[in-house]
Design a protein around this nucleic acid. Sequence first.
DNA 1: TTATTAATGATAACTATTTGCATTATAGTA
DNA 2: TACTATAATGCAAATAGTTATCATTAATAA
Lengths: 148, 148
Amino acid sequence: MLQKKWRMTNQRRVILEELRNSKEHLSADELYMRVKKKLPNVSISTIYRNLEELAEQGLIRKLGPQSIQKRFDANIQPHFHIRCVKCGRIDDVPFSMVSEVSQAIRKTTAMVEKITGYDVLGYHLEFLGICPECRKKEEKKERERNGR
Amino acid sequence: MLQKKWRMTNQRRVILEELRNSKEHLSADELYMRVKKKLPNVSISTIYRNLEELAEQGLIRKLGPQSIQKRFDANIQPHFHIRCVKCGRIDDVPFSMVSEVSQAIRKTTAMVEKITGYDVLGYHLEFLGICPECRKKEEKKERERNGR
DNA sequence: TTATTAATGATAACTATTTGCATTATAGTA
DNA sequence: TACTATAATGCAAATAGTTATCATTAATAA
Ligand SMILES: [Mn+2]
Ligand SMILES: [Mn+2]
Ligand SMILES: [Zn+2]
Ligand SMILES: [Zn+2]
């Protein structure tokens, strides 16, 4: 498991610092503006590279979509989804299966509104996992590694 | 509330048809490939325009991220988020406030795995709403409309 | 101090999506 | 049916966010 060596550069330190000093959930370009005040020559690609790296190391969290492209569903009945983190495929999770979950969520709405000050309009719940096809592929790889 | 007239064009009909015929959750370009087989001259921008339009009309559902850009959080403690659908701002929802929800979700994991065939790794829960600032703006607009 | 190589800055490339605009075609009306 | 207003289209160019390339710099360990 030879892992590459980790260097704490000036840029990396300031990026982490600025993100930690902010109560907001900054986007790459917002963070870029702030880091530039400390390090005027910093490049936007350094911001992106470090955000990826820091998220991979578990020092920060990447919010929102991992895949960039939108998907569409002709089934407008209430149901949930599970997305494969390997290939991006999306499958259905029937509403009935998690109706207690949505009940529990609805029960918290008033409290969430009170604490956050938002008008809560709804929520978005999505499961993440590895689809059967991707699991088979991984198992095959594993077998080849061991069996060789 | 003068709303513009709705025309059921050939392209729109086929786009909806193809999405309905598919059990998958198609992306714009996947759908484009399928529609092209029926309408070889169709344009990718027609696909995009119609998906937006159909979603707005409630005939289909747009999955995944509404905002395109990623955001980052230096707080790696377990907590949830609420996103303003008007301005994209993200605020925290403390874990304690929805711990029953996450308990309920964990309880369903085995069932979700059984039905979908996925290995469930986790989930993503995000509340949607209107932030205090955007509400104020809306209220002001409303007053101006009425008061005039 | 020196050698190794991770990381950087500048820029080009890329992907998904949106926009501008001249042209076409739908739906309502005569 | 023919006419008309304008919604919608096809094509191309533009945009946004992000990722890749590569010569150069600088952090670490010996
Ligand atoms: Mn679905
Ligand atoms: Mn947060
Ligand atoms: Zn998969
Ligand atoms: Zn807002």
